[in-house]
Simulated assay, not measured.
Amino acid sequence: MGVVSYELVVNSPIPPAKLYKALVLDSDILLPKIMPQAIKSVEILEGDGGPGTIKKVTFGEGSQFKYSKHKIEAIDKENLKFRHSVIEGDMLMNVIEKITYEIKFEQSPDGGCICKESSSYYTIGDFELNKDQLKAGKEKALGMFKAVEAYLLANPDAY
């Protein structure tokens, strides 16, 4: 097994607590609402929404994948941190054991937010991810982030 990691840092004019609530705490409802072509639905399969919870994400018709299962590893509302792993689904392509995402939201000097995401891909056997596969993962994460940011900018009273 190999591990390939990357980091993504994004600045936003949205305050960190507001972005955390929308992108982490309410994402199961918000993402299918604003990105139905990418995410059709999110359902809890087991757990109460806290650490250990398993969720099934069903992707929309605009996605190349059908579904994935995610396990919530940690939620730290006070420090605006969140960690979860993709543990099953066709996005793992039978060559990745799991993908772990750790996200942290920090206050920026201008009143907005600095979002830091680190992603780790745990590959099976000798499989190596190429730069294009990593770039595609970064672009999808950034696209979701920007969609939520745009929604919050257009709906300042939300959250």
Rank of each mutant, 00 (worst) to 15 (best):
G60C: 11
P15V: 03
S12W: 02
D110Y: 10
P16V: 10
S5I: 15
K131C: 04
K69T: 01
E7G: 07
G47L: 00
E43H: 14
K56M: 11
L31Q: 10
G137V: 06
V10K: 00
K138W: 07
Y20A: 03
E149K: 05
G50N: 13
I39K: 00
C115N: 02
L45F: 11
V9G: 00
K40W: 01
F59L: 10
F105I: 10
G2N: 15
N130P: 14
K131A: 13
F105D: 01
E106L: 04
D90E: 11
G47A: 00
P13W: 12
E128N: 11
A154V: 06
Q107K: 15
R83Y: 07
P32S: 04
A147L: 14
N155Y: 14
N79T: 07
L153D: 04
K135P: 02
Q133S: 02
S120W: 03
S63L: 06
Y159W: 06
K66L: 13
H84Y: 13
A38D: 15
Q133W: 09
Q64W: 00
L8P: 00
A74T: 12
K56T: 05
G62V: 09
F65R: 02
P109A: 15
S118R: 04
C113M: 02
F59M: 07
T58P: 05
S68A: 08
S12C: 02
P32M: 08
E149I: 07
P32N: 12
K138C: 10
S68Y: 06
Q64H: 15
V9W: 00
F105P: 03
M35L: 11
P36Q: 08
K140T: 13
G60F: 09
H70R: 08
Q37K: 12
E73M: 01
P51H: 09
E78R: 11
K140C: 11
K131N: 14
L30M: 01
N79Q: 07
S5E: 15
G125R: 12
I54T: 08
S12P: 03
I114P: 02
I87P: 03
E61A: 13
P32G: 04
K146P: 06
Y151L: 05
K56G: 00
S108Q: 09
L23E: 01
E102S: 12
I29V: 09
V4G: 02
I72G: 00
S68M: 07
K40M: 06
K40F: 05
H84K: 12
